[in-house]
Structure formats: C-alpha cells, structure tokens
Write a protein that binds this DNA or RNA. Structure first.
Lengths: 103, 103
DNA sequence: CCGACATGTCAACTGGGCCCGACACGTCAG
DNA sequence: CTGACGTGTCGGGCCCAGTTGACATGTCGG
C-alpha cells in the first residue's frame, strides 16, 4: 500500500491542472491562483495537498513563493498502472478482432 | 477535462485493491466483500463508484453477481500521466549526476 | 410454494474535503 | 520606519463521500 497521498492528490481536477501548469515551469503562488476563479486560500490548500504528496516544492523568493514541480512520485502511479496496461491494450486489439461479437 | 470519475475511483485504496483483485479474473460480490473488513454496502458502494467510472462490469449469474474488470478507462490516466513521464525520468538521471548538489 | 441465501438499496450519522473572508507574518519600496 | 504587497493560516459553513444496520428484491433448494 503505497502512499495513497499521490492518488488522493490526483483526484481533484484543480490539483491536476496545477501540476500541468507547473510542468511548464515554476510559478508563483499568486500566478497560480489567478489561473482559477478560486480564492487564494483554496488554491493554497490544494498546493498543500500537493506538497504533502511531495509533488511540488516551494522556494521562497523575496516576498513571493515559487512552486516547482517534482514529478517523481508520479512514478508510483505509473508503477501501479503498469500491471493493467496489457489488459486494456489486449482488449482494444480484441475489440477490432471480434468486431462482429456483441458486448 | 476528461472524466474525473476515473481519477476519483483510483483515489481510494479499497477501490484500487478491488481493481487489482479483479485483474486476476472475475469475482462475485460476496467474494470481493470478504477480502476487506468492511460491510457489504460499503463494498457495494465502492463497486458502484467503479461502475460509474466504467472500470468494472457486473453480470448476474444465478443469485450471484459476477464482476469483470474493464481496464480501458485506465488508459485515460496513462494519457494524462505521459507528459510528465520524461520529467521524472530526467530528474532521476540528473539526481545521479548532481549527487553532490544539495536538495 | 416456502425458507434460506446472495446482493442491492435505503435512511441516518459522521467525517472530511472544499470553499471563503479575515487575520498574521514576512518582505520590499520609499 | 512605515506602508503596501504577496502568502500562509485560521475559523466557520457547506456539501458529498463513506459507513453502518435494516429492509427489499430476486434466485436456488427441497
């Protein structure tokens, strides 16, 4: 039973969007908050969840705070996902093969 | 904004475990419920979440109900994950390179 | 046809996630 | 030093997921 916090972090669309934004490079908290029509505290809380999952790292820069993406924990998701991969790939193939079959 | 329900389904350890169990082959509801120390309704609700995400399919067999895994929606998670993959792989490599750097 | 079984579903309670407004802390400009 | 700005955190309210025990539905055995 791995971390659970990573899967939990990915469960909310805002947090997934945050990760996508940070994939393009570091951003400040205010900059991130402006991307959503949410209050600053709300975004701060989402960032806190991401920080707990160690998916982001924050570095104080003057009176701003710069958030960096740390994608390593996502490897855990991929590891979990991997055993299933051949299942849906096999099924997608067989769907083409047995196109005459019913569901 | 893809389905959201898939990520939500994966957010709970019981549901992830259910998927792993079903990866080994179809199982009945009661059989699945016995794997956890949870009430039947609890497991049924988890199964309902999985069904909503179209990750499982249930087929009545006599007075039992057989659950099958349908892994296709997991492809959505992999698709979302893929753009990040090179990030953590690159970082794991560079961690070895800059081992003398601090965090 | 009747009782036992497998399962789904309902009502009610609880917990926690999500959101906001307000406040506190530290930093920069002058 | 003082005031403005960027951020984090706190307190409170709202709502939904999760849990449980009890009940309803449908199926098999005799």
């Amino acid at each position: 039973m791995p971390d659970d916090s990573v899967f939990l972090a990915l469960a909310h669309p805002v947090r997934r969007r945050l990760l996508q934004l940070l994939a393009g490079g570091p951003r400040t908290a205010g900059d991130l908050a402006e991307q959503f029509d949410l209050s600053r505290p709300a975004v701060a809380e989402h960032l806190s969840v991401l920080r707990r999952a160690e998916l982001v790292r924050d570095v104080p820069v003057g009176r701003q705070r710069r958030y960096h993406l740390t994608a390593e924990p996502l490897a855990e998701v991929e590891d979990w996902l991997h055993p299933f991969e051949h299942l849906w790939r096999a099924r997608l193939r067989s769907l083409a093969d047995v196109a005459e079959e019913d569901t």
